[in-house]
Amino acid sequence: MALTRDQIAMRVAQEFKDGDYVNLGIGIPTLAANFVPKDISVMLQSENGLLGMGPYPTEEQVDADMINAGKETVTASTGASIFNSAESFAMIRGGHVDFTVLGAFEVDASGNIASWMIPGKLIKGMGGAMDLVAGAKNIIVTMTHADKHGNSKLLAECTLPLTGVNCITRIITDLAVLEVKDGAFHLTERAPGVSIEEIRALTAGKLVAEGDIPEMQFS
């Protein structure tokens, strides 16, 4: 069975280590904050200038001066810091943020990512995505393995305009966990009940599946 959005987020959260600084993009990545294991602490970075993003506010806590990178009202966690946008991207570009999790339209076997622009559709902009993929030490892409028409999003070569080059090393989809290296997608885990053949059928780029590929574990 393909994973739900929450299950993808749950699997993402298993990657976090105690003490990690993490930037979560909009969509499935944001959900990962709900599944951080209870015995570890991570600090969420919001690129508009907040390190230590807390939960959404209560009615009483709502403050127009307190928003996240998605322009949503938000709170600061204990021990948070707030800074200007140049400082915020200094920590991103400078490699100080441990993890970036973001969505994508396409990823290819060279680790290129396309996530911001579909020619012919209205182009809204890249926001901070290009800076994030250029700077984070570890980037995890979360997306469905195929689009709604069944076309693979893991390609030999991206077809859409890129967000960044040679920067993606890890992908967590609704079907699999994959590592990107040496020009191929290396399958490391399968969603429960999903076969290697099913994953191969929906992976357009070169897929390497060596030996016994374990299923993802959810506690």
Partner: peptide, 14 residues
């Protein structure tokens, strides 16, 4: 005025 673009409250959080 300090208009809020996306007012999201704790209980609405998904």
């Amino acid at each position: 005025e300090k208009r809020i673009e996306r007012r999201v409250l704790a209980k609405e959080a998904k």
